[in-house]
Design a binder for these strands. Sequence first.
DNA 1: ATGAAAGCGCTAACAA
DNA 2: TTGTTAGCGCTTTCAT
Lengths: 339, 339
Amino acid sequence: MRNHITIKDIARSLDLSYSTVSLALNDAPVVNPRTRQRVQEYARSVNYRPNASARAISTGRTYLVGAVLGRFTNSFFEEIAQGIENVASQRGFDVILNTSGFGGSSEEAHLSRLVDRRIEGVICTRYSISQQGIDRLEKMEIPILLLRADACGPQTYVAVDNRLGGRLAIEHLAALGHRHVLYVGYDFVFSQLREEGAREAARDFGVKVEPINVPAAIDRGAAFAAVSRRAKALRDFTAVFCADDVLAVGAIQALQEIGLSVPHDVSVVGFDDLRWASLISPPLTTVHQPQISQGETAMELLIAMVEGQQVASTVLAPRLVVRGSTAPVVKRAAGAKAG
Amino acid sequence: MRNHITIKDIARSLDLSYSTVSLALNDAPVVNPRTRQRVQEYARSVNYRPNASARAISTGRTYLVGAVLGRFTNSFFEEIAQGIENVASQRGFDVILNTSGFGGSSEEAHLSRLVDRRIEGVICTRYSISQQGIDRLEKMEIPILLLRADACGPQTYVAVDNRLGGRLAIEHLAALGHRHVLYVGYDFVFSQLREEGAREAARDFGVKVEPINVPAAIDRGAAFAAVSRRAKALRDFTAVFCADDVLAVGAIQALQEIGLSVPHDVSVVGFDDLRWASLISPPLTTVHQPQISQGETAMELLIAMVEGQQVASTVLAPRLVVRGSTAPVVKRAAGAKAG
DNA sequence: ATGAAAGCGCTAACAA
DNA sequence: TTGTTAGCGCTTTCAT
C-alpha cells in the first residue's frame, strides 16, 4: 500500500494506454462511457489516488495557498482559520499554515518555502508579514489577501468596519445615558479607526470621549496598571470603551481594584467578541466581529484573484452584543472609593 | 517573474548541464567549488527557487504533513498549532491544516486530498478523525500521531499526564484545608483520568470527592445550570475541581448565582490554563497544560516516525498554577444563602 | 474512441 | 569534475 498505484499500473492491468486512463479518470467526454466506467471502477477498487505533485508539475497548478497568520492575530486565529479552511476545502484548495516568522530572519525562509511549493496565493495580515515580504510576493505576482488590513495600502483586504464598530459602542452607551467615556486603545490603525468611529458618534450624541493609549507590544498586565492609574486620576467618566476584549477585561479588573463595580459604577464595552467574552463576569458587552465570515470571505476573494478575476476589498459589518458589563448610568462620585 | 526560472534555464545561461547545476544547487561535494559558487550566485541573482512538486515527484518525498484538528480541540488549537509549526518549519516540513471533517461525509474527501498530496504523516486527535479514517491512514502506512490521546489504542500519542493533573489539584485543595470537593467532568477519557488522579490523591489526603457529570456535546451554558442545581442540593463541599477551564468559569458563575462567593465561600480549580484563565475574575487557579510543548513534541515524534525511527508515546507533566480562585477553607454553612 | 509520444522540473545512475 | 540519459506520475497534443 505504501507504494501508490499509478496510471501506468492501471493502464497495464486494463490493457489500455496511459492517456486513455488519464482521460477516463478526468471524465473527459471523448472517452467511451463503458471504458470510463471500467477505468473508474478499477481505480476505485485498487484505491488509486492521483499524485498531486505530478499533476501540479504538468498542469502548472498546485491549488495550494499559504496562510501567514502571526502572533498578533492569535486571538482570532482559530475561527478565521476555520473560515479559511471551510471554503478552501470546498473549492479544492489546501492551505499551508504559517504562524511564525514575522519580520524576523526566518520570514524570508518561510516565504521561500511557500514559493517553492508554488502556492497560488497568500492570506496574511499587516502584522504577520513585513512590507518586504509583501513586495516579494507581489513581484512574483502571487495574489495577496490582507486580513484586518484597515484600509492602508493598495492590497485587497477583508476587514470589519472598525469605524462603525466604534460608533455602535458609543450609541449603546449614549442610549444608556453615559456622557463621558474613556477610550482605551493601542497605537494601531484598527484602534485608531475604532476611536474615530467612537468620536463621530460621540459628536452626534453629545458624548465626550477621552483617549488613553496603551503600549501594544507590552504585557497586558502592565498595560492595565496604566489604565487604572489614569482612571484614578480622572473623575467623571461613567463608561469605558476598549479597543479589544483583552483590554476590556484588563479595564474591568483595574476598575474593580480601585473600588468601582462594573457595570454598576462604570460600564465597559469591548471589541471582538472573543470566545470567552461571555464567560467572564460580568459577561462582556462587546462589538462582535464575524470572524468565520472574515476567513471565508478572505478565501473566497483570494480564490477569485487566483482565478484572475478583479475583486474589491470587502468590509464586514460588526454588531453590538449587549451583555452584562454595561448598564444605565447612575449618579455617583466617580472614583470616590478609590481616593 | 510569474514564470519561474528552471534548472534548465540556469544550465543554458551558464553553459553547463542540467545535472551539474542540480548538483551544485544541492551542495553536492563532487562539484567544483568554483562552479558551485558560480551556479549558486547566479541562481540567487535570478531568484531561482526549486519547484517542490518536481522535486517531490522525483525523490518521492514531499515533506508535507497533515494536521487534522477538529472543533473539539478548538480551545487548544492556537498554541498547539504554533508548536507544530515551530518544529515543522525548523525541520523543513510544511503542514496542511484541516479543521473540519470529523466523521461527516466530508472526512473521506478531506483525507483523500491529504493522500493525494502524499503527506508523510498526520497529527490528529481522537475527536478530529474517525476510526475509519485512522484505519485508512494506517493501511497506507502513513505515520499517525495522536494528540491528547489518553492512552487508548495502539497509536503513538503525546498527551499531558491527566492523572497527575488531577492529583495536583487535590493536593493543592487539601493543603488549603478542603475536605470535600466536587468534581465536575465530562464523560470523556481525559476527564475520567483527571477524576481518577483526583480520587487517588483524595484517598491519600483524606479528602472526599463527589462527581458531577455534565453532557459534553451540549451548550455549556445549559451544563452550568445543571451544575448549579446539583451544587444547591449538596450541603458541605468547599471546593470544586473542574475537568477544564470552560467548566470552571461556568461553575464560578453558577456558584455566584446561588450566592456563594469564589474563593471566599468555595474554591474552584480548573484544568488547561487557557489563555483567558488569568483574565477572568477571580483569576483562575488551574492545572496548566504545556500546549506549545505538546505541539512541538508531537511534531518531533511524527518526524521521527516519518524518518523510520521507533518512537514511544510521551506524556508531559502538567503543573498547577495558583491564582485567585482558591483560598483556605473557612467554616461556613454551605449553600446557606441559596436556600 | 484510443494510442503514441512529448514534456512539466527535477534527481540520480552512469558514462565520459 | 561534468555531461548524458532515463525516469518520477501526470497531462496533453497529435496521430490513428
